[in-house]
């Protein structure tokens, strides 16, 4: 098969799929074509999309490949959607970070780090399928151990957990720290006032 034809087929498969497609799955569909060749074609497509400044990119997420819109077009794409997606609070994000780095981890261990109750936040994260129960810890009470899901990787554009940014060493962390300069005053999506009822978890 010609390389161009292979790329065309891969593009169609990617376009039609709602989930990231793994190399293994491509190989299954494209019977007889070597994985090495498929991987090479995908790599070529990646650089072609980048170079041509297309409105989409080929990203490697959650162990597979997926077409995703170009970041610079985010505001336009957002206008296309009527529904505001659920939002995530700072506490939710922090708890998720703790789980991502310390998994598998129990609630008590999360609470020890955050210094506050995490029940509501954990329920939200489970509900959004960003974390899951992976086992029970072999200690009295046999508490659940939590870990992240493929949806977590997809959300944060991560190929796998090894791509998580490395935690800073404790030594570097003496305050006072400079304020985060790069944070703009407000992002365009944070200023819309529509539908606020769905934005906050751990209500009450």
């Amino acid at each position: 098969m010609e390389r161009d034809q292979l790329k065309s087929i891969l593009e169609s498969l990617l376009f039609a799929s709602e989930e990231p497609v793994t190399l293994a799955r491509f190989a299954e569909v494209l019977e007889g074509i070597e994985r090495k060749e498929i991987a090479a074609a995908l790599a070529e497509m990646q650089s072609e999309y980048d170079a041509a400044a297309r409105g989409f990119r080929l990203s490697e997420v959650a162990g597979g490949f997926q077409l995703r819109t170009a970041r610079e077009n985010a505001d336009w794409v957002k206008k296309l959607y009527r529904d505001r997606p659920a939002r995530m609070s700072r506490a939710t994000l922090e708890t998720l970070a703790i789980i991502a780095y310390k998994q598998p981890i129990t609630r008590a261990e999360m609470e020890a780090i955050r210094g506050v109750d995490v029940d509501g936040v954990v329920a939200t994260l489970l509900d959004r399928r960003l974390i899951r129960i992976v086992a029970r810890k072999d200690v009295p009470g046999r508490p659940f151990l939590y870990g992240t899901t493929p949806e977590f990787l997809q959300l944060f554009n991560l190929k796998d957990l090894s791509q998580l940014p490395t935690l800073k060493e404790m030594e570097e962390m003496t305050l006072p720290q400079p304020a985060e300069e790069e944070t703009p005053p407000v992002s365009s999506d944070a200023v819309t006032a529509e539908e606020n009822s769905d934005k906050i978890d751990t209500q009450d």
């Binding site: 959607y81 529904d83 505001r84 997606p85 659920a86 939002r87 995530m88 609070s89 700072r90 994000l93 959004r128 960003l130 949806e151 997809q154 959300l155 944070t183 703009p184 005053p185 407000v186 992002s187 999506d189 944070a190 934005k199 906050i200």
Partner: peptide, 11 residues
Amino acid sequence: PTEEVDTVGFE
């Protein structure tokens, strides 16, 4: 739609 990470107001 899935999530949007957004730390609500307090930037």
